[in-house]
Amino acid sequence: MRGIRQGSWSIACVCMVLGFMLAVQFRTTQDIKGNVPFQRVEELSARLLETEQERDGLREELKLLRENTASSMGTDELRKQAGFTALEGEGIIVRMDDSTMTSKAGENPNLYLIHDDDLLRVINELRAAGAEAISVNGQRLIGTSEIRCAGPTLSVNNVRSSAPFEIRAIGEKKTLENAIKMRGGVAETLKVWGIQLETELSDNVRVPAYKGSLKFVYGHEIAEQGEAQ
């Protein structure tokens, strides 16, 4: 090519500088691409380690605090009543599962599934019959426990579980059974929809302790005042 007569040397020099820059930039970009996921992995694993250490520390602290509070007088009884200890005694085990019937055309298939309110009714009956401790699928029910619909599952103590449900209740077993099975009661209503409900009486039902922790952030203790204000 005869085109370039002027300044070919300067263009050559400049091209060299340009080539240098190009190569450096190319390598830098390559490095960045290669490095970022690696850095991310390291960062994430470091964070995981940190969180795990924090968790272990907190667990240790919790244990210490529990020991300290347990040693003071009278708290054992309170802990039992609050549901922080596992209990064993005579009682009933209720097992519930979704209906085996197929829904007829045009019928809402939801009717054949166990819902939070079905479970709530059973638990309400058990409580009315004097159950001392109740657990649902291994989750102890305490004063702040919720039973609510969580998509296709139920959430108890913010732990999700799905059918079949096993409700364990400690109390006088005959009374508990009668409360569930009385005429027009829960068992009969649920049977209409084919929802399976079995009861098993036992002399040593085990109900686990509440596994979470309770911390009151918004409520403050005040001296009891009279009803009239």
Binding site: A12, C15, L22
Partner: peptide, 18 residues
């Protein structure tokens, strides 16, 4: 046209191996 190309290649090599 040769000189700029040679310069470019030299620069690329220099940059790549620096």
């Amino acid at each position: 046209m040769i000189k700029p190309l040679l310069g470019l290649i030299a620069g690329l090599l220099l940059g790549y191996f620096s």
